[in-house]
């Protein structure tokens, strides 16, 4: 079981992700360059957070056209695990591998703080192990999840809302949804449930000394992934 951590120019969470996977989640992981054309030898892919191409035009728009995305799309089709965190989530949406888009936070402010999350779907590859409320950081300016009303209804009906922002201790429901996301959506799944896009950073919450190790509950789902045939 080996995870490909895709490196894009302008991403800045690739090292965190590799470290979190290897040293905290104890999962084999390696970097793969965005201009590579093959994910042969890997069983899962992680698209890290950051500011690919300086967030020019739209966050993730340019990275979504990288050659390696054809392989990420193949993984998505074949049911292999794919996770996009923050900018990685934006890239997956821009590439059409997840529905919807991430827009500027409702209050036009870069948000860097801990949030609380609840898994809505409890049966997908990524969420079946998540039964408790998770705490982990967000760090984004464009994290307000939007989609047209029909798509939101479909996501609800098909149980594809992976995570929602929920109030932490003493927090009001309004404060709990930091960016004004539709229905407080923090993460969504593709139809098969093997592709997860999530705005909060599980790779930044993998040790108690970081304030939380709840991110491991998401990353360690990868331990259950089958090795590629």
């Amino acid at each position: 079981m080996k995870v490909a951590v895709i490196r894009f120019p302008g991403a800045n969470c690739d090292q965190d992700a590799l470290h979190a996977l290897r040293d905290d989640a104890h999962i084999d992981a390696e970097y793969v360059w965005h201009e590579d054309h093959s994910l042969r030898g890997y069983d899962a892919a992680l698209l890290p957070g950051g500011f690919t191409y300086g967030d020019y035009l739209r966050c993730g728009a340019m990275a979504a056209g990288a050659p390696i995305l054809d392989e990420v799309a193949r993984f998505a089709r074949e049911g292999r695990p794919v996770i996009g965190v923050c900018n990685g989530f934006q890239i997956l949406c821009e590439a059409g591998l997840l529905p919807g888009a991430l827009m500027a936070n409702a209050k036009q402010k870069f948000l860097c703080r801990d949030v609380h999350l609840q898994a809505v779907n409890r049966s997908s590859f990524w969420t079946r192990g998540v039964t408790k409320t998770l705490r982990m950081p967000i760090a984004h300016l464009e994290g307000r999840y939007v989609a047209d009303p029909d798509t939101i209804c479909r996501l609800e009906d098909e149980d594809r809302i992976a995570f929602r922002y929920v109030p932490g201790p003493g927090e009001s429901p309004e404060d709990a949804n930091p960016n004004g996301a539709t229905h407080a959506i923090a993460g969504v799944l593709n139809e098969k449930g093997n592709v997860l896009g999530i705005m909060p950073h599980p790779e930044r919450a993998t040790r108690k000394i970081l304030g939380s190790d709840d991110g491991l509950l998401i990353l360690r789902a990868l331990c259950a992934a089958k090795a590629a045939a």
Partner: peptide, 9 residues
Amino acid sequence: DKLLANPVI
């Protein structure tokens, strides 16, 4: 359609 605009938004 391919890059300059995102039809979702």
